[in-house]
């Protein structure tokens, strides 16, 4: 396949298939988890699981009392790379055109310079997180191949996107193909790796809050 043919494929069937795999996989994953079910709680409740669950879903997004340096580092670097990634994804002109072609919706973009900053910050935070994964004995012990694989899958769209916008290394067409493929691989990988936490984090937090909330504790 030539570069042009690849480009047509990744912009056409590639996007279709990866988006379909993402939607199918994520729906599958969430429902599979839900239908595993859990026992009905027969104890007399002291609080509302629903309300506490929703609150935990929200409050776990922030610092919590008694955090240590590891905690601050995790939250700050985590926010930096998550926001860097999401802002770059959602507020770059050319990406908005993609979402527009899917949904018909569009919204104002951020200037390319700002997007460059968010992408670079995202990459920097990801590098920091990776270095820390090796340097921190706790994190190193917990890590498995998926942590490194997912790191690569996350950083690639950011790096190839920057190379593309600044036309570094490869011709535009090749970089565009690589960039779109990196995004498509990420899309496909999300439901089937620990990256699925992008959705299941809300389920996990809800369960946590609901379990504690049943006893009247805001977790």
């Amino acid at each position: 396949m030539t570069g042009v043919e690849l480009l047509i494929w990744v912009r056409g069937p590639g996007l279709q298939l990866s988006l379909a795999a993402f939607i199918l996989g994520m729906t599958y994953r969430i429902l599979q988890t839900y239908f595993l079910g859990r026992a009905k709680n027969l104890a007399e409740p002291r609080g509302s699981p629903w309300i506490h669950g929703m609150k935990t879903m929200w409050w776990r997004s922030f610092f919590h009392p008694g955090m240590t340096i590891r905690g601050y580092f995790t939250i700050i670097s985590g926010y930096t790379f998550h926001l860097g990634f999401i802002i770059t994804l959602l507020f770059f002109d050319q990406h908005i055109e993609l979402f527009k072609s899917w949904t018909g919706l569009s919204w104002p973009a951020l200037p390319p310079l700002v997007i460059t900053v968010t992408a670079v910050l995202g990459i920097a935070a990801l590098v920091a997180v990776l270095v820390d994964r090796f340097a921190d004995p706790v994190r190193y012990l917990l890590s498995d191949y998926q942590d490194y694989l997912c790191w690569v899958l996350t950083v690639l769209p950011l790096v190839t996107g920057l190379l593309l916008v600044y036309k570094i290394w490869l011709p535009y067409t090749s970089l565009l193909v690589v960039h779109i493929i990196s995004f498509e691989i990420l899309l496909v990988a999300i439901p089937f790796t620990k990256l699925s936490h992008v959705f299941t984090i809300f389920i996990a937090r809800w369960y946590n809050g609901a379990i504690a909330g049943y006893k009247g504790v805001q977790s």
Binding site: I8, T27, I30
Partner: peptide, 23 residues
């Protein structure tokens, strides 16, 4: 940067298939 193939139908099929398989 836009997709060149429609995704609406496929996305709908994916939701249904994912829901069926997940359930």
């Amino acid at each position: 940067s836009a997709g060149i193939a429609g995704v609406g139908t496929l996305a709908g099929v994916a939701v249904v298939a994912g829901a069926a398989a997940g359930t």
